[in-house]
Amino acid sequence: MVQVKAIKAFSDNYIWCISNEAEQTAWVVDPGQAEPVLNYLSEHNLTLSGILITHHHYDHTDGVAALVKEFRDIPVYGPRHSPFKGITHGVSEADKVTVYDYTFTVLATPGHTLDHVCYINDELSFTGDTLFSAGCGRLFEGSAEQMWHSLCKLRALPDECKIYCTHEYTQANLAFAKAVEPNNEYLLSYSDEVDTLRAKDEISLPTQLGVEKQINPFLRSNIATITDELPDELKINLDLNEPWQRFAGLRAWKDKF
């Protein structure tokens, strides 16, 4: 039986562990730290078989070297032209990666970084720092237009697809989403559910794409009214008839929120 479980790292990162109980092996996604992974593998009597990397940031890659040292010759999949040099199997748009029963298609999703990729299929997808629950990654390297097109690729997934992102940012993202859409009843109700989970120290992930289409202002930038609450000073020089420019305004607002 294949399972996906969260390994907590740093203050708010999740390293996703895809494990096969019958084989007693596992893959991990974006191991920013090695120690929590090693502890989890030991506790569950698992051997590491491979690593998936979404982008080069340290909190997604710093644990790779120690894991590869411990489990020699394991494959490390990641963006083909990444600044991170620990990748052994470079992947690009439309490449396939098979992990146990799952075959993932690689999506190039520049925006947060230029090398960012996601590993997707109709059942579950690993979105790194591109798509969060109720949010998206900051634009450290790419443009707003690039990020909007990346989000549109993910938006095409089935509503039932589970979204495994890398950070527990959901409550903060929902606070912003409620400022954007203060009358979105689905959003308000969902925010209450997440508050209940977090009060019990339970994680808010994975989310589902269908939920995100209802609560995530960045995925909803195709809606003409999504910028109604956008501060006037952020509307300057934007053509709010263009979805990617509505996205750009929302992202600029979130950066200051």
Rank of each mutant, 00 (worst) to 15 (best):
G86K: 05
D195V: 10
V180D: 00
E202N: 10
Q214A: 02
P79S: 04
I18K: 09
V99M: 05
D12G: 09
E242N: 07
N173K: 03
G142T: 01
L197C: 10
T103C: 12
S42C: 08
Q214F: 02
D12A: 14
Q24F: 09
S133F: 07
L52A: 06
S150V: 01
N121W: 06
A177S: 13
E229R: 15
E168M: 09
A66K: 12
K213Y: 03
Q171N: 11
T88I: 07
A144Y: 14
T25Y: 07
N121R: 02
P79W: 02
Y100C: 08
F71E: 05
G90L: 04
G86Y: 04
L187G: 13
A108P: 03
V4W: 10
V106F: 04
I51G: 03
A65I: 11
V106A: 05
A172M: 12
D95G: 07
T88Y: 05
V37L: 10
S125C: 14
L219E: 04
T109C: 15
L209Y: 08
D101K: 11
D62L: 14
L52G: 04
Q146F: 00
A177E: 12
P243K: 14
A22I: 06
S125K: 00
L131V: 01
K153M: 09
S42V: 08
N222C: 11
P206Y: 07
L114F: 10
G137P: 01
D239W: 08
D115C: 05
L131A: 01
C136S: 13
P83S: 08
D101Y: 10
T25W: 07
I87Y: 02
V97E: 09
D129R: 00
Y14V: 14
L238F: 11
T54H: 14
P36N: 07
F132K: 01
T88S: 15
A65L: 11
E212R: 02
K178V: 12
S49I: 00
S19T: 15
E145G: 11
L219Q: 03
D30A: 12
E141N: 12
T207R: 03
F10Q: 09
L67T: 03
L238M: 07
A94V: 12
K178N: 13
S143F: 09
L139I: 14
A144F: 13
A108G: 10
L187D: 10
